[in-house]
Design a binder for these strands. Structure first.
Lengths: 209, 209
DNA sequence: TGGTATCCATACGCCTGCGTATTGAAAAAG
DNA sequence: CTTTTTCAATACGCAGGCGTATGGATACCA
């Protein structure tokens, strides 16, 4: 049958979820503006007729895909939040976990591509607010002043956003320079005093103000 | 001098440069895909007829704008390079200078938006390679190993890219958190041992201020 | 005065993508 | 065995954007 790369579309009806999923993949790879009905239908082995039965407009599909991402997001953060008591360790684990979720990072970078799109903005804004607030809280738990915590959280978040942006724009160059785990470790060492093991810097290098 | 955005255009012939400049502005604001001939002509107060006299295709305009940016880039880097002898100070000055050039930062962030565009890729790749190489060199001048220098350079560059990405995608949120100078100072403190002040402990670059 | 080069307007054809309308087919319900 | 519901194909209209063709208009030259 349709010997295309995708599943062979053997007369099995297409679910709404299938469209959303395909759209999400497309967003992660080429950004929101790439979500076009006809090309997408071609990939799925159907025509527009199918799409406009499942969705009222193209915007509805985009919105659905973004909504799905936001749900995943929240779930993830909450699940990792409950855990660790020690603030230092929690912060480091948080950092590593964030960078380890490559899918999410790539999707986020792809969203940033379409940041001017009014459909995307609210999702991007909420995600940024949520993550930054979380980061600030985590840094404050170390005993830092709010200003200091804000600054470090922004730095950490920018390093996150920047890494995935660079990975998207020029993956060869980035990979030639260092690997992910080394990158994150370095970031964590720069922002969070190492937790107990080995002699960390004498006394308390952290200034609370 | 076109007084403001779209006025004048009083029978004075339009130069090729005017098109390139307008295109560059557009790229910085909305990305490469926004560079469309007819809307641009509307802004400049002419029609397509003018454009296709100065340029063969739309691609030619885009290339011209990117080329102009790359030239500026190189000039800037070279001009700042000659200066400082002390590697610590040089690195910090470099960092501050990079972040202070808001125009360039915004243009870079806008380019990253269109990183998938085959027209943009080479320019983006060259800029990234050049800057990273420069950063690595600067860190090695501090006496760091190549691996360590690579790591820190990537971190610094990601912080740069990330900051301007966030400034582009969610400026309100970023500005609510901290200001630019504080951000850069923090980054410099984290990556570069302060020039004179008390020596930080050997391993951890976190420095009391 | 006439010619030539420069700069721009207008009109056209083409393609892509959105959304609608209509028809069709197959499964489920009756 | 009908009827209804579900899903999809086809055909259409419309808009925006690229590139071409052609015809002014203005200025500079000879």
């Amino acid at each position: 049958m349709t010997s295309a790369k995708k599943i062979s579309r053997i007369a099995m009806p297409l679910s709404r979820e299938a469209w959303v999923k395909a759209a999400s993949r497309l967003i992660a790879q080429e950004g929101v503006q790439a979500v076009a009905v006809e090309p997408l239908a071609l990939v799925l082995g159907v025509t527009k007729g199918s799409f406009y039965w499942h969705f009222k407009t193209r915007d509805e599909l985009i919105h659905a895909a973004l909504e799905a991402w936001e749900q995943d997001q929240s779930a993830d953060v909450v699940s990792r939040y409950g855990g660790i008591a020690d603030p230092r360790r929690r912060l480091r684990v948080l950092l590593f976990a964030a960078f380890e979720d490559l899918e999410n990072g790539k999707f986020f970078a792809a969203l940033a591509v379409s940041s001017q799109d009014p459909r995307v903005q609210p999702y991007l804004r909420r995600a940024t607010e949520r993550r930054l607030a979380f980061g600030i809280e985590a840094f404050q738990a170390l005993g830092l002043s709010e200003a200091e915590a804000r600054g470090r959280a922004l730095l950490a978040y920018a390093a996150y956003a920047g890494y995935f942006q660079l990975l998207r724009t020029t993956p060869e160059v980035v990979r030639a320079v260092t690997d992910l785990s080394g990158y994150v470790r370095r970031l964590a060492d720069a922002l969070v005093p190492a937790p107990k093991r080995g002699r960390s810097c004498a006394g308390s290098p952290i200034v609370r103000r």
